[in-house]
Amino acid sequence: MSERSRAVAGQIGLLLFLATELMFFAGLLSAYWVLRNKMGLWPPPGQPRLPAGITGLNTTLFLLSGLTIYGAERAVKRGCHLCLMGWLGLTLLLGLFFLGLQGYEWLRLISFGLTTTHNIYGGLFYIVIGSHALHVVAALAVLLVVALQAVRGRYTVGHSGGLTLCRMYWTFVVLIWPLLYGVLYF
């Protein structure tokens, strides 16, 4: 197989995987919708509200990381190694910031008494947002590998298959987030 057809195969495979992922989140959201409608009062009495404001800010920054990784891909096409490193570094930082702020908010929510035991409101929050957080962790790990490859100068014009796959996965993780944010935080 030529490098080009290998790259195409990789992209097709990843797209198929992302379709499955989309169905996974659709399943979670439909469960959320059913249970929330059943409960009536939402959030249930005595339960903390979710921090929509600060998470909104976080969402905006996270969406930006979807643009920066696109910048990294463009940089390879232009053959600018320094820009590539810059864009990748920025994406990593934005991703880490998103994860860090989310973790901080989780700790605060736990201290406000948002638990899972016999608590569907809390349980749904942790399972939906937690699933996404796991995806962010995985995407960050992939990004880290790609960044290390980039340092070694692995990506040149026409030889950036790995970076493209990473960009596709990262974009998926970024784009699914506003949907989860919109459904869960309001």
């Binding site: 499955t20 979670l28 469960a31 249970l35 569907i120 349980g123 399972i127």
Partner: peptide, 25 residues
């Protein structure tokens, strides 16, 4: 298979959460 399995995995996670963390979904 690929288009149908996602929701079941979501359901299985929730079932596991019910068993391990008593979420009660």
């Amino acid at each position: 298979f690929m288009f149908s399995v996602g929701p079941l995995i979501a359901g299985a996670f929730m079932l596991l959460a019910d068993r391990l963390f008593q979420t009660g979904f």
